[in-house]
Design a protein around this nucleic acid. Sequence first.
DNA 1: TTAATAGTGTCTCTGAGACACTATGTG
DNA 2: CACATAGTGTCTCAGAGACACTATTAA
Lengths: 225, 225
Amino acid sequence: MSVDVVVLTVADGKIQALLIRRTELPQRGRWALPGGLVLKGESLDQCAARVLREEAGLAGVYAEQLYTFGVPKRDPRGRVISVSYLALVDAVRLADHADGEAVVATLGVPWGGQTGGPVTLQAAGRTLTLAFDHAEILGLAVKRLRGKLDYAPIGFELLPRSFTLRQLQEIHEAILGRSVNKDSFRRRLLATGWLRATAERESAVAYRPAELYRFVHRNEIRREE
Amino acid sequence: MSVDVVVLTVADGKIQALLIRRTELPQRGRWALPGGLVLKGESLDQCAARVLREEAGLAGVYAEQLYTFGVPKRDPRGRVISVSYLALVDAVRLADHADGEAVVATLGVPWGGQTGGPVTLQAAGRTLTLAFDHAEILGLAVKRLRGKLDYAPIGFELLPRSFTLRQLQEIHEAILGRSVNKDSFRRRLLATGWLRATAERESAVAYRPAELYRFVHRNEIRREE
DNA sequence: TTAATAGTGTCTCTGAGACACTATGTG
DNA sequence: CACATAGTGTCTCAGAGACACTATTAA
């Protein structure tokens, strides 16, 4: 019984994922999702948080359960049922995680819309081969992310606390794999009530600076409906 | 490691669920979801299909994975991680399943929209007390069903092979817990391409009989986009 | 002043709701 | 024929896309 965590971020208009190099057999040397066995007395959510902390050095990031994989032969060592999680983190927090044993790789999504399927991964110009069924799990993570993006406030998890609407739009475009209409995007996002304008503006840009917004947490949103 | 299956149907404008009376400790006498331990060499999907067959007498019905529950103390016998499944079946196939050990109970959904939360269950005018966290799992099943209904072809799983648009609308209304606009519902469903008109009409009604439709399976739909 | 992007106002198009009207079965 | 529901045509309204225009900053 194990937990595997898909850690996604968006940078340079591309979806990226954190991968760990396997140091043990089987599949030694291949790249894999951060993961670990569920300990006694530990809930699945707690296990995912621990894996994020111990293997990725991340605490307090957004994570949700994705799917449970239980085909008998998916792991050659024996029967391993894996509960996968999807974690989202802003690119800055992941930037210093690339070393010999970990890499932040760029995803290629060879399908459109909600079709689903495995993805490909590239880092430093080379295509990575993933261990086990991890390419399939990553594909499911992208599918889930695409599906939730338009009706759930999760794009913000991929950005720092303050951000411009343009940055948020670029996140959406990277995830959806297509361009979105600027005017309609602004109107729609502002109408959700998820955003609060700060009085501040971005700096160090060679043109009119955009206003910075913050995500309004659920408990700050007034009840309606 | 176990699998619990939520078997839902819709009859008389209400969502109904199949429950089994527990004959063993703990919680003997309480009502529970059909479930069982995952066997060696058996995938999770296969286990769900076996539980449906052995405990519910159902084969070839629609089922999808729902969520995995892994809080350490959810089962007093020890550590039991449960993968839940959602199965949909038409009311006729479930009608003869009420005996001493099984009951088809009517759900009460005390929340609107996608809010989520536990549900209540009634059978023969009495409120049933469910074992473990099964009321919570049933609530999640309703939430998932509501969420998927409008963009996925799953309403048909709750009806016989041929059905009228009015019947399908009543299914949607029961699941969503609100009335839906007749004209818009017809237009929208016919526009999806999920339905094929048969030349037949319903019979034994005291008014103009409606045309019968059938669900067009995915592989019969021509590719587009 | 120019370049580049932020942000606004408005027109059009599409899809849902509303509603009136016609069609077709039974008693 | 009356009645009840099936099914269609059309008007209105709300939201998305398109596009023009103004605003604001750095160089």
